[in-house]
Computed example of a mutant assay.
Amino acid sequence: MNEVKIQSDTGVTLVGGGEIGPEDISLALRLAPWLVAVDGGASVALDGGHDIHAVVGDFDSLKARDRARIPADRLLRIEEQDSTDFEKALRSISAPVILGVGFLGARLDHQFAAFNALARFPDKPCILIGETEIVLHVPPVLELELADGDVVSLFPMAAVSGRSQGLKWPIDGLAFAPNGRIGTSNRAMGRTNLEMDGPGLLAILPRRALASALTALAETHPRASAGQSPVQRPARA
């Protein structure tokens, strides 16, 4: 079940079937130029004229007319029903960075499922892009260049603790838990560093922090430290 089938030395843009803004895919592709669609997300990508490197999912939402437009060797069908299509895609992809569009907004249960997957696959450096915010799992060390006053919300998907520098309200000594303390609406005072004792914490940041978050995640990935250039560096996100 955990076999990686899609390997990329550059960033991957993952397109889902949820809410997608008019510039979301283009923005993501400028940063992560490989496009992988998740089931019905293929329709959005094809309608936008984008080249699809692969489609992953159980294909219950993939329209027959769209499936016919995609080469057979790019269709990765995973029929089991014990996981979401987003989870299937995460475990099937090996890449320095994954940018997900079409996973925030729309149905709330789908958003919670995506958050669950981020927490369950902490080794996958993935950022979900929404209309005004981005969401990512916090690795053991995360160094972000943020603007003074940027909202930094920290939501635990498991019991977790850590330390911070650059937050208005430091997290040192706090025990986070889904049914206990959470970290809604903290504020950055500029450069912000997080050091976690274990996995399970999600960070919700302003969308304008995408470039900084992407760079920070890439720097935690072995391929990035090996001297490769996993993502396109933007002037701004």
Rank of each mutant, 00 (worst) to 15 (best):
L35C: 13
L46K: 02
W34Q: 12
A37C: 12
I20R: 00
A37L: 06
E23W: 02
E19D: 13
S26A: 15
E19V: 09
G21L: 08
G41W: 00
G48M: 09
V44M: 05
G49T: 12
G18R: 02
S26K: 14
W34C: 11
P33R: 02
V44P: 00
G18V: 03
V44R: 11
G49R: 14
A28Q: 01
S26I: 08
P22F: 11
G48W: 07
R30N: 15
L29Q: 10
S43Y: 06
G21S: 13
L29H: 08
G48E: 07
E23N: 12
G18N: 07
E23L: 09
A37E: 05
D24N: 09
S26V: 14
A32D: 10
G41Q: 04
L35S: 05
L35N: 01
A42P: 06
W34H: 10
G18H: 07
G41P: 06
L31F: 05
A28K: 08
H50G: 01
V36C: 11
I25T: 00
D39R: 08
G49F: 15
A32P: 07
A42F: 07
D24W: 02
G48V: 05
D47T: 08
A42L: 10
I25N: 03
D24G: 05
A28Y: 06
E19W: 05
D39F: 06
P22E: 15
G40T: 06
G41S: 08
A28R: 00
D51P: 08
V38H: 04
I25L: 13
G17P: 03
W34E: 04
A42I: 08
D24M: 02
V38N: 04
P33E: 05
G17W: 01
H50V: 13
V44N: 05
D39T: 13
A45T: 03
A28W: 03
A32K: 00
A45F: 07
H50L: 09
E23C: 09
G49C: 14
S26T: 15
S26C: 02
W34K: 04
L29P: 04
D51V: 15
L31P: 03
A42S: 15
L35E: 06
G48S: 12
L46N: 02
R30A: 11
G41E: 02
G49D: 15
D47A: 13
L27I: 10
L35Y: 12
V44C: 04
G18T: 06
I20Q: 04
A37Y: 06
H50S: 03
I25S: 01
L35M: 13
G21R: 09
A28T: 11
L29A: 04
D51S: 14
P33Q: 00
A42D: 01
V38G: 02
